[in-house]
């Protein structure tokens, strides 16, 4: 596990994105994004392949399903954050770890590390 692993953050709530960014940065990750829309996320993914990703499902009117599909296709591990809790998960990605908002930053890091470890 590289200390400088790049994590894609897809989150439309600015405050939450900031918290995520700080948490990941403090833990030694490098944050890509945060992307607030699917287009932004896709742009980031076009540019480079992250080591992992944190996806908010609901991006102000659209869902991050296309991003999740692409990440899954490219083999990038990711976890899902959702205000819906367990019930709002995309059916195609039901096996991915889910954190219900608001979540404990420590738990987020633990989950991410576990994902990256493999």
């Amino acid at each position: 596990m590289s200390r400088s692993a790049r994590i894609l953050v897809v989150e439309d709530e600015a405050m939450v994105a900031m918290l995520l960014e700080d948490t990941l940065n403090d833990a030694g990750f490098q944050v890509l994004g945060p992307a607030a829309t699917v287009a932004e996320a896709m742009a980031v993914l076009d540019a480079e392949r992250p080591a992992g990703a944190v996806l908010d499902i609901n991006l102000g009117g659209e869902t991050s399903a296309p991003v999740a599909d692409r990440l899954a296709a490219e083999g990038v591990p990711f976890l899902i954050c959702s205000g819906y809790g367990a019930s709002g998960v995309l059916p195609a990605h039901a096996a991915r770890p889910v954190l219900a908002k608001p979540y404990d930053p420590g738990e987020l890091l633990r989950t991410m590390r576990r994902l990256l470890a493999g």
């Binding site: 709530e13 405050m15 939450v16 918290l19």
Partner: peptide
């Protein structure tokens, strides 16, 4: 209701973030 819940949860997350950011 789901949307409302989503918003409440987001708000809680925002509050959490605010508190942590403030302390930071």
């Amino acid at each position: 209701i789901a949307e409302l819940n989503h918003r409440v949860k987001n708000t809680l997350a925002t509050v959490q973030s605010l508190a942590l950011q403030t302390a930071r």
